[in-house]
Every structure is written in structure tokens, then in C-alpha cells.
Design a binder for these strands. Structure first.
Lengths: 155, 155
DNA sequence: GAATCACTGGGCAACTTGTACAGTGCTGGT
DNA sequence: ACCAGCACTGTACAAGTTGCCCAGTGATTC
């Protein structure tokens, strides 16, 4: 899938995203063209989706994160519900899932009270029958992919 | 918190991350120094955490995502458990939560069978008493912050 | 043996960055 | 009414980076 050089390249860019291709080639001890080619291929293959800005919702004022499990009405299916959830800015992520619930959403709010408002918006979505919410109190491991990249690197 | 120009800047960088400061200033119709100052301040304040490469676990071979709710032994607290979970590469995110469970993890695997292996690793973590897993079947709304940025922008 | 592929190392023009500085217009304080 | 502070503009310059191209090398495949 990816090799050791790819993994080191991704690790480097992850640690210092603004360093650029030339600096990467210096640090990795390979030719600039090689880094350029690797990067291009990683992006082409979709391994690297992009280099978008990572926004911290907390710093935007949305200090509370919660996970909401939804049960939805069978008729109509998931898609219309997902579309309506997508219209709520505070809904940050939606999955359809196995198990007791039908969908799992990650949402944020400006506080517990504001979270209630967001949950009410979700409850009001047509097709949503029941919700159950857990609030994230702390995040000992924030989202990461680097260990995965290292694990996936086969020389 | 942030204003309209900040939001448009973030939106622009999100859509085309590689365009650079100069191109941003052209598209936003402001001076380059302004864009540079805004970007610096957004990063300084932590609103923008960085511009790291977004890696797609699926393209690395980890095609299955799941959410695992953990119940842990009270004695010892969350931290040692979190530390041991962090040592598992396939554990991509860990939260402590309210409600029935104590922790919520996002994990990935190379397939359903591989997921079982990861879950077994988690179950074996000292302090973990019970787990319950839901598999993500589809992701109609992938993680996003842009709508939040737009909602937070106050002119 | 020939073809293919990834990598090296070099060169070149065009562009971008970091930085600086003077000028302008708005805001809040006194 | 005046001033200081602040953000933005527009400009300038040197240094660095990018995108692109090319010839040569070594490993792998057919």
C-alpha cells in the first residue's frame, strides 16, 4: 500500500505542514523530484485527501462535543434524514450504524444549554424517532492517523 | 470570535489548500499583508490548528470504521486506560463520556475480521470491563467544520 | 537482452514568501 | 475636538521555492 518513505513523508508533513517539498527532500535525504512524485501519487490515490486547515470548534466557541445515536423511521430510509441533518451546522459528522441505533452523529454546541438546542433541532428532523446523547467530557486521544500510517507502511 | 473575512479565508483554503497567501489575497480582494496577518492570528489563537495532511484510513487498507463504548473499572481512573488504548494504532480517537459507558473510541480495521482483532486488543486492556461496538456502515456526512465556521462568523 | 520503472542531480524561468515601510481611515478614550 | 492605537493598503526587494525538463543509473520484469 505505502512504503516506509511514504510514511516518513507523511509524518514529516504532519509535524511541520508548512515546510514544502524542497525541505522535505532535504530532511528525508532523497531528491526533490522523488518527494514531488511521492506526494503526487499519494494524493492521486487518495491516501492523502488534502491539506485543508484543521479548525478547532472549541476555539470557535463550540466547546461541547456530543455523540447522538438516532433511531429513525424505517419508511423513507436514511438519506433524507442525513440530508436534513447535514443542514445543521453543528452536526459535524453522520454515520449509519449497526446495532440498536440507526445513525450516529457527532455534534457540537456552545455549552450544555446550546447543546440542548442542537439536539432539539435533530429531534425535529422528519423521520427521527428517538435520540440518545452522550457528552464527551474529555478527549484523551484526539483524532489521529499517524500511527495507522506507520502501521501500514510495508517496506 | 471570527469575522466574515476569516470565514471566507478558511473556506477558500479548505476548498483549495495549496493556493498560497498571494492567491488568497487576490481571490478575496484584499492586500496580501492582510491575509498573512489574518492567517497568523487564526493560527496563533488556535482556531486553525494546522495544515496537516488528511489521511484516508480506507485508502491505507483500513476499510471498516467502528465505535466502541467501554465500561472501565473505577479503580485507577481513565488515564491509564486511555494511555494503553493510545498504544493501539487502530484506535483513532478516544473520549471519556457521560451516560451508560465510560469511554468512546473510534477504531478502524482492515475488514470485519480484522476489526475483531482490534476489539480483542481493546478488551485485553487492563481496566476495561466491557465493550459494545457499533460498526459504521456508511458516512453520509463526513467530518466537517466549514458550516460551523460560517455559522460562527460575526460581521 | 530489452523494456520499464523509480530515483538522482542538475538547470532554468516564473513565481511566492518574508519582511519592511509609509500612508489612510476608523475607533475609543480623554 | 484631538490623539493614539489598530487594521488595512500598496509597494518594494532579496531570498527562496516551485514546476518543469532532461540525461544518466540501477533494479525488476518479461
Amino acid at each position: 500500500m505505502i512504503d516506509d518513505l511514504d510514511a516518513r513523508l507523511i509524518g514529516l508533513l504532519d509535524a511541520e505542514p508548512r515546510i514544502g517539498v524542497l525541505e522535505c527532500s532535504r530532511r528525508l535525504g532523497v531528491a526533490r523530484g522523488t518527494v514531488q512524485a511521492r506526494l503526487d501519487r499519494l494524493q492521486e490515490r487518495g491516501v492523502i485527501r488534502g491539506f485543508g486547515p484543521e479548525v478547532d470548534p472549541a476555539k470557535l466557541g463550540y466547546q461541547v462535543t456530543a455523540f447522538v445515536t438516532l433511531e429513525i423511521r424505517q419508511a423513507g430510509g436514511h438519506d433524507p434524514v442525513a440530508a436534513r441533518l447535514a443542514a445543521i451546522p453543528e452536526v459535524i459528522e453522520v454515520h449509519t450504524i449497526t446495532g440498536g441505533g440507526d445513525m450516529l452523529c457527532r455534534i457540537v454546541g456552545r455549552g450544555n444549554q446550546d447543546l440542548q438546542r442542537v439536539i432539539d433541532l435533530i429531534v425535529d428532523v422528519e423521520g427521527v424517532q428517538r435520540t440518545s446523547t452522550v457528552i464527551a467530557l474529555a478527549t484523551p486521544v484526539p483524532q489521529r492517523t499517524l500511527p495507522l500510517v506507520r502501521a501500514a507502511a510495508r517496506p
